[in-house]
Design a protein around this nucleic acid. Structure first.
Length: 341
DNA sequence: CAGTAGGAGCGGG
DNA sequence: CCCGCTCCTACTG
């Protein structure tokens, strides 16, 4: 009876997740490019200018928000310590890059790389930079929100429990394809984390402390901003309405798999490469990257050992319940919501 | 080989 | 009880 789960090779397939606080993790064999990296590399690019433009985010100038953001949460960060007092270099989004060969370092891009002609005259350049900036900020906020839903944590790092911190760390490692650093920050709460300097971070994790610190800084800034903006401004941006509507984590109820899948589907911008609609009207969708979706699900449910095998079993349970089914023409990895929205 | 299908046991809420 | 996780076996393209 006591069949060791080991017999299933897939069982060890989540070297990404240290099972719980501080548990030693299985020798993380293949996590590097194959598993973790791959999942997150996405081709499609196009920093969504239009999206932002018509969303009209308040033109936020963030002196503390010196970052670069490319789609899919690959944020390129360059932190300027407020204390350094120097004016921020301007953050510029880059065209989607192939910088992934340098996992632990965020590439820093100069303006030329963006194709912003340096020859442009001041005024105009500034304006477009402003636009770009607010666009970037908008995306960042959106993505933080997404991450929060996904991880079931609140945006403001200062409120995080140590468990939340761990989730966030896993997530961040995941995004940046960082070597695992979670352990270095074990029983720390969000408050502790926020109190730490970049130096502290680096001390705990020489390899990726700075990235983590930078990333945390973004979250901190975002929380700060959000607080500021939300006062007396109840405007919700388009995408988020949908999101909130679809999201169930707000209600306190544990999320269901089908809801989770819908959530992902509602964010094609972020997850379009791992799951996407084939026919939205009919509710037909395709899981493009089964391992990735499973990992996300596992992350959300705190199930490190989640894999597609199990996830798909859960989906199949929906057949009987009439929530999800196989489409008429059955294809691999294609499912259909019985009651499309 | 990866996905599909479904039985079965278990545990948490 | 419901829901999802886990394990398993059998089948398919």
């Amino acid at each position: 009876m006591s069949s060791p789960g080991e017999s299933l090779s897939s069982e060890g397939s989540s070297p990404l997740f240290p099972s719980r606080l501080g548990q030693p993790e299985s020798p993380l064999g293949d996590r590097t490019g194959a598993e973790a990296g791959m999942a997150w590399e996405m081709e499609d690019t196009k920093p969504c200018m239009e999206a932002l433009e018509h969303r009209g985010l308040p033109g936020l100038h963030l002196s503390c928000f010196d970052m670069l953001f490319t789609e899919d949460s690959t944020w390129l960060v360059k932190v300027t310590e407020a204390s350094s007092g120097q004016a921020c270099p301007v953050p510029l989004p880059i065209t989607r890059t192939e910088h992934r060969d340098e996992p632990e370092q965020c590439p820093v891009i100069d303006s030329q790389a963006l194709g912003l002609s340096p020859g442009l005259e001041g005024q105009e350049e500034e304006r477009s930079l402003e636009q770009v900036q607010s666009m970037v900020v908008g995306e960042v906020l959106k993505d933080i929100e997404t991450a929060c839903k996904l991880l079931n944590i609140i945006p403001d790092p200062i409120e995080w429990s140590s468990g939340n911190v761990q989730k966030w760390l896993l997530w961040t490692e995941h995004l940046y394809r960082l070597p695992q650093a979670g352990k270095a920050f074990q029983e720390l709460t969000g408050k502790d984390l926020c109190a730490m300097s970049e130096e502290d971070f680096r001390q705990r994790s020489p390899q990726c402390g700075d990235t983590l610190h930078a990333h945390l800084d973004i979250w901190k800034s975002a929380a700060w901003m959000k607080e500021r903006c939300s006062v007396g401004d109840s405007k919700i941006t388009g995408g988020e309405e949908l999101w909130l509507e679809a999201d169930s984590s707000c209600s306190g109820q544990p999320i269901h798999l089908w809801q989770f899948l819908r959530e992902l589907l509602l964010k094609p911008h972020n997850y379009g490469r791992c799951i996407r609609w084939l026919n939205k009207e009919k509710g037909i969708f395709k899981i493009e990257d089964s391992a990735h979706v499973a990992r996300l699900w596992g992350l959300r449910k705190n199930r490190p050992a989640m894999n597609y095998d199990k996830l798909s079993r859960s989906i199949r349970q929906y057949y009987k319940k009439g929530i999800i089914r196989k489409p008429d023409v059955s294809q691999r990895l294609v499912y259909q919501f019985v009651h499309p929205v």
